[in-house]
């Protein structure tokens, strides 16, 4: 049974180093990732409905930057931004990186994180709920999604991506892959 108090924070030293890292490579990878996600999970959009046009600020509060997500069907974007450059957004979802990744992988319950104040939401609540429910239904595994970025070499990349994600995740106590779920 998970406990909200157990959610680890990103190491402060790492966060300090990232403060000066260029965000362009992260934005390029993010753009590629979100396009792959949309190709592989088309039903995300039937659940998002009109909320797919909204701008979400995904804000890992233990990192020195955030992500602007616009899951638009035709032109999806996921851009790393400094908070002061985040611009206008419709909804903000903030919390430790581990909590946000855990939500994607179905490790944590979003309502419980909200009750315990580990997760903060602001702005358009309807958009936040739609995004949370759509992602929860897709049973997304980021390691598999990253492997899919390699196109025809996906099957080669899949096993190393999962092993690396699993090992790093265990070390930091963060869910970087969807383990222990095996639905027939």
């Amino acid at each position: 049974m998970w406990n909200a108090k157990d959610i680890p924070l990103f190491p402060a030293v790492g966060a300090a180093m990232l403060r000066f890292a260029p965000l362009t490579p992260l934005s390029m990878a993010g753009a590629h990732l979100v396009k792959t996600l949309i190709r592989r999970h088309p039903s995300l959009f039937s659940r998002l409905g009109e909320q797919a046009d909204k701008v979400f600020l995904i804000d890992p509060t233990d990192l020195p930057f955030a992500f602007r997500l616009q899951p638009h069907l035709e032109a999806p974007t996921l851009e790393a931004v400094r908070r002061e450059d985040a611009g206008l957004w419709d909804a903000r979802i903030g919390g430790p990186l581990a909590a946000l990744l855990g939500l994607v992988h179905g490790v944590y319950d979003g309502d419980a994180l909200f009750f315990s104040r580990d997760l903060v939401i602001e702005g358009d609540t309807e958009a936040v709920l739609a995004l949370r429910n759509a992602i929860d239904n897709e049973e997304i595994d980021l390691a598999s999604e990253i492997a899919a970025l390699f196109g025809p070499f996906e099957h080669v990349a899949a096993t190393p991506a999962r092993k690396v994600s699993s090992a790093v995740g265990h070390f930091f106590g963060v869910a970087l892959t969807r383990e222990n779920e095996n639905h027939a």
Binding site: D109, G110, D111
Partner: peptide
């Protein structure tokens, strides 16, 4: 029904 599959799994198993 409005909760996540994480909630469902934990509560049902319990």
């Amino acid at each position: 029904r409005q909760r996540s599959r994480s909630y469902t799994e934990a509560v049902v198993r319990n």
